[in-house]
Amino acid sequence: MQYPPAIISSATSRLQTLFDVENLPASNLEALHYKLARVIQHLLQADLSRLLHILYRIDVEERQVKEAMIADDPEIIAERISRLIIKRELQKAEIRQRYSG
């Protein structure tokens, strides 16, 4: 699905705040996914409770997270979780835009 730049930018800005990171790409979803997956992989290994708290705040379905975590490779898990997070934040950005104007 194609998203307008304003939606992607809004979602990216929120993700930067939630994950306390800078310079997430706001124009390319694949680049955003790649960079966010690296951040998530770090949290999986270093601070799982913080990652779970962020997932709760973003409101990613618990069932989807559990399914995403069924893998032996932390890189695959991080990529799956990254996609879930980005999808949810894009949905929320669309809703905010739809009802704000």
Rank of each mutant, 00 (worst) to 15 (best):
Ala6Val: 10
His53Arg: 06
Leu48His: 06
Ser49Glu: 15
Ala78Thr: 02
Ala11Ser: 15
Arg50Asn: 05
Glu62Thr: 15
Ile86Gly: 06
Leu32Phe: 10
Gln41Ala: 06
Ile85Cys: 02
Glu30Met: 11
Ala78Lys: 09
Ser82Asn: 08
Leu29Arg: 12
Arg57Ile: 03
Leu52Lys: 03
Ile54Asn: 03
Gln2Ala: 09
Leu48Gln: 10
Asn23Met: 04
Val39Thr: 11
Leu51Ala: 12
Ile54Tyr: 04
Lys87Leu: 01
Leu43His: 11
Gln2Asn: 14
Leu44Cys: 06
Glu30Pro: 00
Gln41Ile: 00
Ile54His: 00
Leu43Asp: 05
Leu51His: 07
Gln64Ser: 11
Gln45Asn: 11
Leu15Cys: 02
Arg96Thr: 05
Val60Ile: 08
Ile40Arg: 03
Asp73Asn: 13
Ala68Asn: 02
Ser82Gly: 15
Leu18Val: 01
Lys35Pro: 02
Ala93His: 07
Lys35Ile: 09
Ile95Ser: 06
Ile86Lys: 10
Arg88Ile: 00
Ala93Gln: 11
Met1Phe: 10
Ile81Ala: 07
Ile81Leu: 15
Tyr99Ile: 09
Pro5Tyr: 08
Val60Tyr: 04
Ile85Arg: 01
Val21Gln: 03
Leu52Asp: 07
Gln97Thr: 08
Thr12Ile: 10
Leu18Asn: 03
Ala26Leu: 06
Ala31Tyr: 04
Ile58Ala: 06
Thr17Arg: 10
Leu52Trp: 01
Glu75Phe: 03
Gln16Leu: 07
Asn23Ser: 12
Ser49Lys: 14
